[in-house]
Amino acid sequence: MPRPLGRLVAGTAALTVLTLLAGCTGGAPTSPSTATSNGPSSGSATGTTTPASSGIEGAPAELAALVQRVYAGEPIGDGASKSAGAALAQRRPANVPVQGKASTGTWKGAPVAVVTVGDDVTLAVASGAKWRVVGGWWPSLGVKQPSLGSGPRWVLALGSDARPGQQLDRTRADTIQVVGTDGKGGAGVMGMARDLWVPLSTGGKGKINSAMALGGAPAQLKTVRSVTGLPIEGYVVIGFSGFKKVVDEQGGIPIVIPKTVNASHAKLVIKKGPQTLTGAQALAYARERKTLPDGDFGRSRHQGELMLAAAVKAKLAGPGAIPGAMTTVSKYARTDLDAERMLTFVARFYRTDPTKAGRGVAQGAFGWASGQSIVVLGSQARGLFADFKDGNLS
């Protein structure tokens, strides 16, 4: 059964997505794509920042001007996505001078930004010299609902077991986690036992984690979509080395370990109690299975704990940390998610109510097929898939 995050925090894995989760490691905000010059605009999306005296501290000039238009109630036109534009059409103009702060970063080469004005948050993405509002929430302007995509949303987080010299997304998936949100403050992280015997998108049947080795991350995504029945938007895949670097560059993952784990494969002991895991420790905790009483199921449970812990850390850091975390993950991950979808998904996960989120692991009975030990897809896993159709596992 899924475990509510409220009980998870209180009991076992208190503080810590996304890796990724997908960019939810939540370190201090950085502005790698923003210069320090306050001179005339260079014509690029990130070349010139705005001084604090002009209203939006740290924003490129074009972005600062766009945000000012938002708060002045002026027409935005193609300066907003369709969904963000529809939400902002309900706004009332601000009656006070706008003072805020921008943090910027990149996602696979595309500039991204989060602008905070009091309790308001504006999410923006740039193409060339042009910034566009793609989402956010604006209570001060009377906008009742956030603009972060409609209905439930899911993303597939994959950990690759690629070794040096191997292609990241053409080896078996060591980690398969589906991260979902319901758009109402609820969320969930669902692990997939990697030995589940399922129909593969590449043809025939096999262990679910073999789809990536046979057809790349797109084939793994199609397989998980088909097996779960969930319309997962896209994937983010990262390898062992990249995972460790992301965790270390973001300052580690604070977590409460419920039981000491002897990670024999890494020759590390992860002790019981509250601590901040380094990249090497987090990877060892995520990969250990031989010393766990429930083997691969326990490993998948640990992976879910780490992702939720990273999400909690991100929430504590605030939305301004999102661009910096996305920049870090972007350096080491491969993905089919563009900047708009990733930014709005991570921001939506940031808004999750910890009492309305949970985790689960799709399990099954052990069996035998094609000369190898497998996990048979059964009623427990199918029930979990059905529970997750609303994007919530609480």
Rank of each mutant, 00 (worst) to 15 (best):
Met1Gly: 15
Met1Lys: 12
Pro4Cys: 14
Leu5Arg: 10
Leu5Val: 13
Gly6Thr: 05
Ala10His: 12
Ala10Leu: 15
Ala10Ser: 15
Ala13Gln: 13
Thr19His: 11
Cys24Gly: 15
Cys24Met: 15
Gly27His: 09
Ala28Val: 14
Pro29His: 11
Ser31Trp: 09
Pro32Tyr: 03
Thr36Asn: 09
Ser41Asn: 00
Gly43Leu: 00
Thr46Ile: 05
Thr46Val: 02
Thr49Trp: 00
Thr49Pro: 04
Pro51Asn: 04
Pro51Gly: 01
Ala52Leu: 10
Ile56Gln: 01
Glu57Arg: 11
Ala64Arg: 00
Ala65Asn: 00
Ala65Gly: 00
Gln68Pro: 01
Gln68Asn: 00
Tyr71Gln: 03
Glu74Asn: 05
Pro75Gln: 04
Ile76Asp: 01
Ile76Arg: 02
Asp78Ala: 11
Ala80Asp: 02
Ala84Lys: 06
Gly85Asp: 03
Ala86Tyr: 07
Gln90His: 05
Gln90Gly: 01
Pro93His: 05
Lys108Gly: 04
Val112His: 03
Val114Phe: 12
Val121Gln: 05
Ala126Tyr: 01
Gly128Lys: 07
Lys130Ile: 07
Trp131Thr: 02
Val133Arg: 02
Ser140Ala: 11
Pro146His: 07
Pro146Glu: 05
Ser150Leu: 13
Gly151Val: 05
Arg153Cys: 10
Gln166Met: 09
Thr171His: 09
Arg172Lys: 11
Ile176Lys: 05
Thr181Gln: 10
Gly185Tyr: 08
Gly186Lys: 01
Met190Ile: 08
Asp195Met: 09
Pro199Arg: 12
Thr202Phe: 14
Ser210Gln: 12
Met212Glu: 10
Leu214Gly: 10
Ala217Arg: 07
Ala217Phe: 12
Pro218Leu: 13
Ala219Thr: 07
Lys222Gln: 15
Arg225Leu: 15
Ser241Thr: 14
Lys244Met: 15
Asp248Thr: 08
Asp248Gln: 01
Gln250Cys: 13
Gln250Thr: 04
Gly252Ala: 08
Ile257Leu: 11
Ala263Pro: 05
Pro274Tyr: 12
Pro274Ala: 15
Gln281Ala: 02
Ala284Ile: 03
Ala284Cys: 04
Ala286Pro: 03
Asp296His: 03
Gly298Trp: 08
Arg299Lys: 02
Arg299Pro: 06
Ser300Lys: 08
His302Arg: 12
Leu306His: 10
Leu306Cys: 11
Met307Phe: 13
Leu308His: 06
Gly320Met: 14
Met326Leu: 10
Val329Pro: 08
Ala333His: 07
Asp336Glu: 13
Leu337Val: 12
Ala339Ile: 09
Ala347Pro: 01
Thr355Ala: 11
Val361His: 06
Ala362Val: 09
Gly367Tyr: 02
Gly367Arg: 06
Gly371His: 03
Val375Tyr: 03
Gln380Glu: 15
Ala381Leu: 11
Ala381Lys: 02
Leu384Pro: 00
Ala386Met: 14
Asp387Met: 13
Asn392Val: 07
Leu393Val: 06
Ser394Ile: 03
